[in-house]
Amino acid sequence: MKRLLMTLTFAIATITLCNAQKIEMEKGFGGYKYTQNGTRLTMGQVVAAVQSNPEAYNLIKKAQSKKTTASLMSLVGGALIGWPIGASIGGGDPNWTLAGVGAGFVAVSIPIASGGNKKAKQAVELYNSSLDSASNISFRPEFKIVANANGIGLSVNF
């Protein structure tokens, strides 16, 4: 009885703990939201989670780089747009050329951010598909009820 209990405990623990969880990606206001097991992940946490798959890791690193570049460009663009608007509100003489340059920065950052989101989506899909194939192919336990001279038992083959 003790062996049966230990075998069942080991089998259940192996099944529940060895399977990695999928990363879900959904579009929200201001960007994408990554979740795993119901907890929200930052881009750095997604990079760490995907590290076991080299192809997905390379894609997510490129996505992270593009996201950082786009964020910096949009920040600079927003500041260049806001400066003349603030000067205009304050009663000063605004430099609208500066606002035009800022609009250019923002316009360039949009396709960069879009490319980063596409790379991130590809990376997450690649990672999730590798989890599906790994869990379905390599881990197929086989349970059998065995009877011999020592009694009846449960056999688990991996």
Rank of each mutant, 00 (worst) to 15 (best):
M1F: 01
K2V: 09
F10D: 09
I15W: 10
L17Y: 08
C18T: 13
Q21S: 15
I23C: 03
I23T: 03
E24R: 08
M25V: 08
E26M: 07
K27C: 02
K27R: 14
F29I: 12
Y32C: 02
Y32R: 07
Y34P: 02
Q36E: 12
N37R: 04
G38H: 08
T39M: 11
R40E: 11
R40N: 09
L41V: 01
L41E: 01
T42Q: 02
V46L: 03
A48E: 12
S52W: 04
S52P: 00
S52R: 00
S52Q: 06
S52K: 04
N53A: 14
N53Q: 15
P54G: 05
A56M: 08
A56E: 10
K61R: 12
K62W: 05
K62G: 05
Q64H: 06
K66S: 03
K67W: 09
T68P: 04
A70C: 11
L75P: 01
V76I: 15
G78N: 11
A79F: 13
L80A: 14
L80F: 15
I81S: 12
W83H: 12
W83G: 15
W83T: 15
I85P: 13
A87Q: 14
G90P: 01
G91S: 10
G91R: 08
D93Q: 12
P94G: 10
W96F: 14
T97H: 12
T97C: 08
G100M: 10
G102T: 00
G102Q: 00
A103F: 12
V106P: 15
V106I: 15
A107H: 07
S109I: 11
I110D: 13
I112M: 13
I112F: 10
S114F: 12
G116W: 06
K118T: 11
K119I: 03
K119W: 12
A120T: 05
Q122N: 13
A123N: 05
V124N: 06
E125S: 15
N128R: 03
L131R: 00
D132G: 05
S133C: 03
S135K: 04
S138H: 08
F139H: 05
R140N: 14
V146E: 13
A149C: 01
I152D: 02
G153C: 03
G153P: 03
L154G: 04
S155M: 01
V156G: 04
N157H: 01
N157F: 02
